[in-house]
Design a protein around this nucleic acid. Structure first.
Length: 473
RNA sequence: GCUCCCUUCGUCUAUCGGUCAGGACGGCAGCCUCUCACGUUGCAAAGACGGGUUCGAUUCCCGUAGGGAGCGCCA
C-alpha cells in the first residue's frame, strides 16, 4: 500500500487569484484527484501588513468558481507562527542556525558594497562563527540558518529534471526575524512537513527557494517531498503577465464570459499536454494528468485560442445548463443586472427556446448575453429615416406576407425564423431573403443582424407580431 | 554582476536517433449561405546559431546568442 498523495495550493492573499496561480491550483488538484489523494489549501498570510480578509475570500471565490475544491479547512500560515518559532529554536539547538546581530542598515551597506564591486549579493557570514558574547547591546538578533558552504544541493524536480545548485551560492538566510516572526522559507518547510504534503507543485519562481528549503528539510532530518516546478505563463508579448495585458485574476476571465470548464481545459494545455489531445473533459484530464507531461518552457497566454475553446464549450453545453451559467454570470457583467431584473419565468422560457440558435454564434457569455438582448429590447425598435427610405413597397409587401410563415416557425430565435423564411422563399420560388438583405444592412450599418423578426417590428407590425407571439408561446 | 532554467510553424504543442517534422488556435483561399456564426475542403507556416558524438540528429554533448526566474528581517 503506497502512501496517499497529498498536494497543496499555497497562495498569498494578494487580492485575486492570479491566472498562473489558477493553473498551479489546477495541476495540484488534478494530481490529487487522479491519485485518489487530497489537495490542501494554505494561505500564506504571514505578511500582516498586506493581509485583508477580502483578499483571502477573493482566492477562495476564484477557486470555487473554477471548480477546484480543496480538502479540509484552509490553513492560515500566520496562525502557525508559534510552531515555526519552535522549529527555528530547534535548529538553533542542533547547531544548524545562529543569532545574527547585523542591523538592516549594515546589511544594506553590505549589499551596496557587493554590488559596487560586482560581487554576488550575499550575506557575508559575519556572525556565523562569532561568539555570542560579542553581541552588541540593545540589538535584537535574527536567527539565520547555517547553510552548508561546500558541496551542492540537488533538487530532483519532476518538471525541471535534476537541478544542481552550488552551496557556495546560497547564503545563510534569516529564518526568524528580530521581532520573533518566522520568514517564508522556514514556514513553508514546517507547514508542508506538518501537513503531510507529499507533492509540492508550484511555479518555477520558487526553484531557488526549493534549494534553500531542501537544506532545511535535511537539517531537520525530514523527508523531502517530491517537487515539481512548473514554468510560468507569459503575456501575449512574451513578457511576464502583468496588468497591461488586461486580465489578471480569474474573476476577470469570469467577467469576460468564459466558462470554468473552458478555462480549465485551456489552462491544462498551457504547459502540459497529452499527445495531440486538445479538447477533453475535466474528468479525462484528471485521468490523464501526469507530472511527466509538464513542459519546461514558459507559455504565452493566447486569448484567441481560449475564445475558440470557450465557443466550443458554449455550443456543446446543454441549453438549460447554459442558461444557468448565463444567469449566474449576469451579476458580473455591465448591464447584466438590468437583464436579470427582467428575467421572470416567462423570459427564462423564451431564452431557453432561443438558446439553440443563440449559443451557436456566441464565443463568450458576453456575446451570448448581447445576442439575447433582442428578447429584452424595448418595443417597438427604432428605425431611422434613412433605413426606412430604403424599403420599397415591394419589399414591405413581401415581408408582411411572411407573417403566416413566421407563425409556423419552430422556435423564437431570429435564426430559426430566418430559416422558416428561407424555406418559404424556396417553396414559392421567390427570393424573399434577398429583399430582406438591404433592409438588414441599412438597419445595422453592418455586421450582425437583428433578424427578420426585428425587421418586421421595425416595419410597424407589432400587432401581427403580438399574434405570432401568442401562437408561439 | 552571480546562480538556475528555457529555445520546434505567429501562438499552444507532438516527436522520447531514422517521420514527407504531426495536431490545435490564428491566417489565407474555396464550399455552404439573405448577415453573423456553425460546419466543411484545401493552402501557407517551425527545429535560434555554431561545433561535436553517430552510418544517421529536432532528438545526446559543448559553446554562442536570445529569453525567463531567483538573488529582502516579501511571499
Amino acid at each position: 500500500m503506497s502512501s496517499p498523495v497529498i498536494t497543496r495550493f499555497a497562495p498569498s492573499p494578494t487580492g485575486y487569484l492570479h491566472i498562473g496561480g489558477a493553473r498551479t491550483a489546477l495541476f495540484n488538484w488534478a494530481v490529487a484527484k487522479g491519485q485518489n489523494g487530497k489537495m490542501l489549501l494554505r494561505i500564506e498570510d504571514t505578511d500582516r501588513e498586506r493581509y485583508t480578509k477580502g483578499a483571502v475570500d477573493a482566492i477562495l471565490d476564484g477557486l470555487t468558481w473554477l471548480g477546484l475544491t480543496w480538502d479540509g479547512d484552509a490553513v492560515s500560515q500566520f496562525e502557525r507562527a508559534p510552531r515555526h518559532r519552535d522549529v527555528a529554536h530547534e535548529l538553533l539547538q542542533r547547531g544548524k542556525a545562529y543569532h545574527c546581530y547585523c542591523t538592516p542598515a549594515e546589511l544594506e551597506a553590505m549589499r551596496a558594497k557587493a554590488e559596487a564591486e560586482k560581487r554576488p549579493i550575499r550575506y557575508d557570514g559575519t556572525w556565523r562563527d562569532r561568539d555570542p558574547s560579542e553581541a552588541p547591546a540593545g540589538v535584537k538578533p535574527v536567527i539565520r540558518f547555517r547553510a552548508p558552504q561546500d558541496g551542492e544541493t540537488v533538487i530532483n524536480d519532476h518538471a525541471q529534471g535534476r537541478v544542481v545548485i552550488p552551496n557556495k551560492d546560497l547564503d545563510d538566510l534569516i529564518i526568524l526575524r528580530s521581532d520573533g516572526n518566522p520568514t517564508y522559507n522556514l514556514s513553508v518547510v514546517v507547514d508542508d512537513h506538518d501537513m503531510g504534503v507529499t507533492h509540492i507543485i508550484r511555479g518555477v519562481d520558487h526553484l531557488t527557494n526549493a534549494a534553500r528549503q531542501t537544506q532545511i528539510y535535511l537539517a531537520m532530518e525530514w523527508a523531502v517531498p517530491s517537487m515539481t516546478h512548473v514554468p510560468l505563463i507569459h503575456g501575449p508579448d512574451g513578457a511576464k503577465l502583468s496588468k497591461r495585458h488586461g486580465a489578471l485574476g480569474v474573476e476577470a476571465y469570469r467577467e469576460m464570459g468564459y466558462l470554468p470548464a473552458a478555462l480549465r481545459n485551456y489552462l491544462a494545455r498551457l504547459g502540459w499536454s497529452h499527445g495531440d489531445d486538445e479538447i477533453f473533459s475535466t474528468a479525462q484530464m484528471v485521468q490523464w494528468f501526469s507530472l511527466d507531461g509538464i513542459g519546461k518552457s514558459a507559455a504565452r497566454f493566447d486569448f484567441a485560442k481560449l475564445e475558440n475553446l470557450n465557443g466550443h464549450y458554449i455550443r456543446s453545453t446543454d441549453d438549460a445548463e447554459l442558461l444557468q451559467h448565463l444567469i449566474s454570470f449576469l451579476p458580473h457583467v455591465a448591464g447584466g443586472a438590468d437583464m436579470l431584473a427582467h428575467l421572470d419565468d416567462g423570459m427564462k422560457a423564451k431564452l431557453l427556446k432561443a438558446m439553440p440558435g443563440l449559443k451557436e454564434r456566441a464565443k463568450t457569455l458576453v456575446e451570448l448575453k448581447n445576442s439575447a438582448s433582442y428578447l429584452f429590447a424595448q418595443r417597438p425598435l427604432k428605425i431611422d429615416e434613412k433605413a426606412r427610405a430604403l424599403l420599397n413597397d415591394e419589399g414591405k409587401a413581401a415581408l408582411v406576407g411572411l407573417l403566416p410563415v413566421l407563425a409556423s416557425a419552430p422556435d423564437w430565435t431570429a435564426h430559426a425564423l430566418e430559416e422558416a423564411v428561407k424555406v418559404h422563399a424556396e417553396t414559392q420560388g421567390q427570393k424573399l431573403g434577398k429583399l430582406a438583405q438591404p433592409l438588414r444592412a441599412a438597419l445595422t450599418g453592418k455586421g450582425t443582424s437583428p433578424g427578420i423578426f426585428d425587421v418586421l417590428e421595425v416595419l410597424g407590425q407589432q400587432e401581427s407580431l403580438g399574434r405570432i407571439a401568442d401562437v408561439l408561446t
